[in-house]
Design a protein around this nucleic acid. Structure first.
Lengths: 114, 114
DNA sequence: CGACAATATTCGAAATATCGCATATACTGG
DNA sequence: CCAGTATATGCGATATTTCGAATATTGTCG
């Protein structure tokens, strides 16, 4: 009973649990409505890959696609998810130290200084 | 560069992307500090399973354990994650209709539908 | 219709996650 | 030290995710 609600939440988190999908959601949050081709270009991803990730997000009703002629425009379904990502940024800042360690562990790639 | 931040966020979401771990986080949010035994009992899970999930949450610094004598008391590392879960509840309510459909799909256990 | 552009889907392989069971570690009391 | 309780870890087996390559679908234009 409460359990199915938790399963629901878990599914949403699962859908967000991928860097590419986070990038997509953030892009939509910032740009509003965007055609697949833009996502494809801006994020420099394989076209098929973009479609696959969009399918995941669509499956959980996180985004919607509006067909217009040849292309499909995607947008966030609910402003709330933008807020969730903002909270995550806050969380990140609160735990900057450990976060950096985590990132290091994951494998690093840049930006010294601060 | 933004990418590692997104990987970080994705890791957090991944850690939350499991019904059991959501249950644990919610329990900690509501009860403050709780010994493993309580989690084990209240959620009716295998002891080892609880430990495994706690390990995941610990690994992402979502929870901390404080050792006291024989037992270990866990608590949420940051109130913010409670807020995230609250937002998720809101999200759930906003999309109640589709959410229910989703839950039904997940269930696959009955209801000849209409 | 035929060619082309935009997007979606399918398939198989590699990587990752989850669970139960067995076992290990840490602490307490006698 | 021994027995007992609380928690953690290692190990296979099974399930799920992810990605690229190939292919399918849909719409446009001439």
């Amino acid at each position: 009973m409460q359990d199915s609600l938790r399963r629901f939440k878990a599914e949403i988190f699962q859908a967000l649990a991928h860097p590419t999908r986070i990038a997509i959601v953030e892009l939509l949050r910032d740009q509003g409505e965007v055609p697949v081709s833009s996502i494809h270009e801006k994020l420099a991803l394989e076209q098929a890959n973009v479609s696959q990730h969009l399918a995941v997000l669509r499956g959980k009703h996180i985004v919607v696609g509006r067909k217009e002629g040849n292309q499909v425009f995607y947008s966030l379904r609910d402003r709330i998810l933008g807020k969730v990502l903002d909270l995550m940024r806050q969380f990140f800042q609160n735990h900057l130290r450990e976060a950096l360690d985590l990132l290091n562990d994951m494998k690093t790639e840049a930006a010294p200084a601060r």
